[in-house]
């Protein structure tokens, strides 16, 4: 009886704070989504899970914190700088993180994957070099920061805005607020997805990427340079990861050299959940995952956050093995 009473309490508790959980979930989910875009892009073109992608994100996060630090904006800086400086710092951080993340992605492709592709190595081997590259990069970052926790500067003054009181419309839930940062993060994720989608579907480079994803031999017969397409794909994934890294730095007070692992797994889960190889799937998967794990945490308690996330993954895949939206970039591989 106690157990059921506990469940009922949890549920009414979940219901009263569902507003906050939802906002937090969408924000975290947006960051997952941005990282998931990289997994899904590379998978769509190469049918390869780039397990080192979490470190693409990691390097971007540390890169932008480093550059901010050089300019005097490190953790503990007393006050949030003036708005113009903030905008400048955010742009600079985004550019830096994109260069670091994009560069890391290109290096991984060149060092860990291309030599294997030249030799037509079996799929399993790519998986092993991916894990190797991932561990190596995260350890190098660890060495550079003495394996210490690094604090991020407080660049954005987070304004808390309560839009309306749900009890006004007869809902028995707590009122909840949304910060400017949370809105920004979700908008960034949607914007990045939209930009990538347009790039893939409206430009010649995008056409080249899609051709290799659908039929690489025929793509070569059309004059598409496969190596260049693959580099571009890794670069695009790196750029999205760089944006994710900056947003992460703004949202969370600290970063560590080993944070890539769990985040990478989560983002990969998001990609699979939404349908790997599908850009929209990465976005939907990320947001759904963020929501589900935060609702789960509200319902079962914080310790159950990751459990909920992966149980939902398994359940979804049981009924929809290709994920929520299915495969699309390499769609109809006939």
């Amino acid at each position: 009886m106690d157990f059921f009473q506990g469940m009922a309490d949890n549920f009414s508790n979940l219901w009263t704070i569902i507003g906050d959980l939802t906002v937090t979930g969408l924000t975290q989910g947006a960051i997952y989504a941005l990282i998931a875009l990289g997994y899904t892009l590379v998978y769509g073109v190469l049918q390869l899970i780039n397990f080192a992608h979490s470190e693409v994100f990691l390097v971007g996060a540390f890169g932008s914190v480093m550059v901010w630090g050089w300019l005097g904006y490190s953790s503990g800086a007393a006050a949030v700088p003036p708005l113009l400086v903030v905008i400048g710092m955010l742009l600079l951080g985004a550019v830096t993180a994109s260069i670091f993340s994009g560069g890391t992605a290109l290096i991984i492709e060149r060092v860990a994957y291309r030599p294997l592709r030249r030799k037509n190595a079996p799929r399993l081997i790519f998986l092993i070099t991916a894990i190797g590259a991932s561990v190596a990069i995260s350890e190098i970052v660890g060495l550079l920061v003495d394996r210490k926790v690094v604090s991020t500067p407080a660049l954005v003054h987070q304004k808390f805005q309560v839009w309306f009181d749900p009890s006004d419309i007869g809902l028995n839930i707590n009122s909840f607020g949304i910060t400017n940062l949370q809105i920004g993060i979700v908008l960034c994720a949607i914007g990045m997805w939209l930009a990538l989608d347009l790039f893939l579907n409206r430009t010649k480079f995008g056409l080249g990427i899609r051709s290799v994803a659908q039929d690489e031999d025929t793509a070569a017969l059309m004059g598409v340079n496969k190596d260049r397409v693959i580099m571009l794909t890794f670069l695009l994934g790196g750029l999205a990861a760089g944006v994710a890294a900056v947003l992460y730095n703004l949202k969370f007070p600290q970063i560590t050299f080993d944070m890539g692992f769990l985040l990478g797994i989560k983002a990969f889960t998001a990609a699979v959940l939404g349908g790997i190889g599908n850009l929209r799937g990465a976005l939907v998967g990320g947001l759904v995952l963020g929501l589900v794990e935060n609702w789960g945490a509200g319902f079962f308690g914080n310790d159950w956050m990751n459990v909920t996330a992966f149980v939902v993954l398994v359940v979804v895949l049981m009924f929809r093995p290709t994920g929520i939206l299915g495969d699309s970039l390499g769609k109809a591989r006939a």
């Binding site: 899609r210 659908q214 039929d215 031999d217 025929t218 109809a332």
Partner: peptide, 13 residues
């Protein structure tokens, strides 16, 4: 240029 065996049409294009 080649029209390959099996035609090689990009199905999603």
């Amino acid at each position: 240029s080649q029209a390959p065996e099996g035609r090689g049409i990009f199905p999603g294009m």
